[in-house]
Amino acid sequence: MTFFAGQNLTINYGTHTIIKQMNVTFPKGEVIGLIGPNGSGKSTLLGALSGFHKLKTGRVILEDHELHQFSAKKRAQLLACLPQNPQAPGDITVRDLVGYGRYAYQHRWTTDHEADHKAVQRAMVNANIQEFADTPIADLSGGQRQRAFIAMTLAQDSEILLLDEPTTFLDLPHQLEILKLVRVLNRELHKTIIIVLHDLNQAARFCDNLVCLKQGTIAYQGRPQDVFTAQMLADVFHVRAKVTMDPKAHCPLLLTYDTI
């Protein structure tokens, strides 16, 4: 059975081909890191996987069905996506924003308010934003705002989470907080999480599987121990680097680096 995969994906902006005939499979129950230089097509791939970008060729398979066979709401129950620059009207409160995550479960006249309320509460607790529940999102710091949006996607109760650079604009402690949250969501709630990260050491440490994009194609995919090599870094990122083993976290670590 195919859990989540893209087959023969080609995506164009106008006549410009961004992703060329890509085949990619995402293992169930893992944290999958999507890495690659700026403009390599990470966000575009994520947009295609969530059904937002139209495909020129190929198909996205979700639980043995083509993605577009699901209704929009059914799809949102299976798959939640946080794009790179989420925007919402600044005056709504965190609670209302997180409540939007329940849209896929709400029927027009018969809505289970109790279940919605519980799911919203749980999502806010999990994303550690509940103390700001009644704060307008315009009044939050960048990190709190990011967590509010993550809580919104958590409220979707989906098995798969797509997160596009959830750690940009955050300082180191808050980056770690988000990454640890991702890991908890994966280990305890068994979510499959596909996450775009720019910090390569964080990607190596927090992901079970790395997908390395280079100019719209997959250059490498596999366990960090296997793909996170000097060879890959030279090939994909054009940096000369020394890779060692992190003694504490037991994952590859980028030590010294420079442009080639």
Binding site: G51, F52, A72, A76, L79, C81, P83, N85, P86, Y103
Partner: peptide
């Protein structure tokens, strides 16, 4: 009244509201 909730959702940016299940 019929579409109030759906209209509220598309007040977010396109990709967000699409991801939430909005047509």
């Amino acid at each position: 009244i019929y579409f109030a909730r759906d209209i509220t959702i598309i007040g977010l940016n396109d990709q967000l509201s699409q991801g939430l299940g909005s047509r």
